[in-house]
Simulated assay, not measured.
Amino acid sequence: MSTRTMLDKDLIRLKQLLLEMVQLSKTAVEEAVHSLATQDIEKAQHIIKADFEINELEEKINNLVIQLIAQQQPVASDLRKIIAALKISSDVERIGDLAVNIAKSILHIGNGPLIKPIVDIPRMADMALAMLKDVIQAYYEEDIELAIRTADADDAVDTLYGKLIKELLELMTSHPESISQITQLSFICRHIERVADHTTNMAEHIIYMVKGKKIDLNA
């Protein structure tokens, strides 16, 4: 097998590992938000325990990247793909951590009465996860325009986040007895907003991968 063929095979493997990692992180966030709405403590505990699977995939990606750079001597365009995959995997791992953080907040909230219906938080999560779905498609297809459109969607997430935090701060004033729960709901909102931020970072890495240019899409 030629060096080029081996490199192409390893690059495909790298992409497959990353797609698998994204799916696990996406599912973790989805299940965490559903656990909040249903106050499913058992599922929240499972999300925390299952995070090791995402971490193991990141380690596999790190090891493959080291192997590729050390053994395959990739040219510039291949090296950008390898570096982009490494950076994207770091953001995906953080998204998995954010799902764990949401699950931990759910454990703090417990199964007592909720201060408000859980409607807008799942809506914000849907928006952030739609971004994640689009950005991984952009990565797979090396589609710069889709990557940019995905990053642009972060503004809507930020707007809803601001609205939710304002509402929760008002609830703190009117329901001081529920400050602990409201604080945890605020944390959850922040974690979801951060999912969108990491997705925007991923869009930047995709542009670097394809064009070799670093662009700040958070500006």
Score class of each variant (00 low, 15 high):
residue 1 M to G: 13
residue 1 M to Y: 13
residue 1 M to I: 01
residue 3 T to A: 15
residue 5 T to W: 10
residue 5 T to Q: 14
residue 5 T to A: 12
residue 5 T to D: 14
residue 6 M to L: 11
residue 9 K to M: 15
residue 9 K to R: 10
residue 10 D to E: 15
residue 11 L to K: 05
residue 13 R to C: 07
residue 13 R to M: 09
residue 14 L to N: 06
residue 15 K to H: 14
residue 19 L to H: 12
residue 19 L to N: 10
residue 20 E to A: 13
residue 20 E to Y: 12
residue 21 M to W: 02
residue 22 V to D: 07
residue 23 Q to D: 13
residue 24 L to A: 14
residue 27 T to N: 10
residue 27 T to F: 06
residue 28 A to C: 13
residue 30 E to F: 14
residue 31 E to M: 14
residue 34 H to C: 06
residue 36 L to K: 02
residue 36 L to A: 08
residue 36 L to T: 03
residue 38 T to M: 08
residue 40 D to G: 03
residue 41 I to W: 01
residue 42 E to N: 13
residue 43 K to S: 15
residue 43 K to W: 00
residue 45 Q to G: 14
residue 47 I to F: 06
residue 51 D to W: 02
residue 52 F to M: 12
residue 52 F to N: 15
residue 53 E to S: 11
residue 54 I to T: 08
residue 55 N to Q: 12
residue 58 E to H: 14
residue 58 E to K: 09
residue 62 N to L: 09
residue 65 V to P: 02
residue 66 I to Q: 09
residue 66 I to C: 07
residue 71 Q to W: 05
residue 76 A to W: 01
residue 77 S to Q: 10
residue 78 D to K: 06
residue 82 I to Y: 05
residue 85 A to N: 07
residue 86 L to D: 03
residue 87 K to V: 04
residue 87 K to A: 15
residue 87 K to P: 08
residue 88 I to A: 03
residue 88 I to R: 02
residue 89 S to A: 11
residue 90 S to G: 14
residue 92 V to Y: 03
residue 100 V to H: 02
residue 100 V to L: 02
residue 103 A to T: 02
residue 103 A to V: 05
residue 106 I to D: 03
residue 108 H to T: 04
residue 110 G to V: 02
residue 111 N to F: 09
residue 111 N to D: 08
residue 116 K to H: 03
residue 119 V to R: 05
residue 120 D to M: 10
residue 120 D to H: 07
residue 121 I to D: 00
residue 121 I to E: 01
residue 122 P to Y: 04
residue 122 P to I: 02
residue 123 R to C: 06
residue 123 R to K: 15
residue 125 A to C: 13
residue 127 M to H: 12
residue 129 L to P: 01
residue 129 L to F: 07
residue 130 A to P: 08
residue 130 A to Q: 12
residue 131 M to P: 05
residue 132 L to R: 01
residue 133 K to A: 08
residue 134 D to K: 04
residue 136 I to M: 14
residue 137 Q to G: 03
residue 137 Q to L: 07
residue 138 A to L: 05
residue 138 A to H: 03
residue 138 A to N: 04
residue 141 E to I: 14
residue 144 I to L: 13
residue 145 E to I: 00
residue 145 E to S: 12
residue 147 A to W: 01
residue 147 A to I: 01
residue 148 I to T: 02
residue 151 A to M: 02
residue 152 D to H: 15
residue 153 A to G: 06
residue 153 A to D: 10
residue 153 A to R: 11
residue 154 D to I: 09
residue 158 D to Q: 09
residue 160 L to V: 02
residue 162 G to F: 05
residue 162 G to S: 14
residue 163 K to S: 09
residue 163 K to E: 15
residue 167 E to Y: 08
residue 170 E to N: 12
residue 178 S to A: 12
residue 180 S to I: 13
residue 180 S to Y: 06
residue 181 Q to C: 05
residue 183 T to G: 09
residue 183 T to V: 02
residue 186 S to H: 05
residue 187 F to T: 04
residue 187 F to N: 11
residue 188 I to R: 00
residue 189 C to P: 04
residue 192 I to D: 01
residue 193 E to H: 10
residue 193 E to I: 10
residue 195 V to K: 04
residue 196 A to L: 07
residue 196 A to K: 08
residue 197 D to N: 08
residue 197 D to E: 07
residue 200 T to G: 14
residue 201 N to Q: 11
residue 203 A to Q: 13
residue 206 I to A: 11
residue 208 Y to T: 11
residue 210 V to M: 04
residue 212 G to F: 01
residue 213 K to V: 13
residue 213 K to L: 14
residue 213 K to I: 11
residue 213 K to A: 12
residue 214 K to I: 11
residue 215 I to M: 10
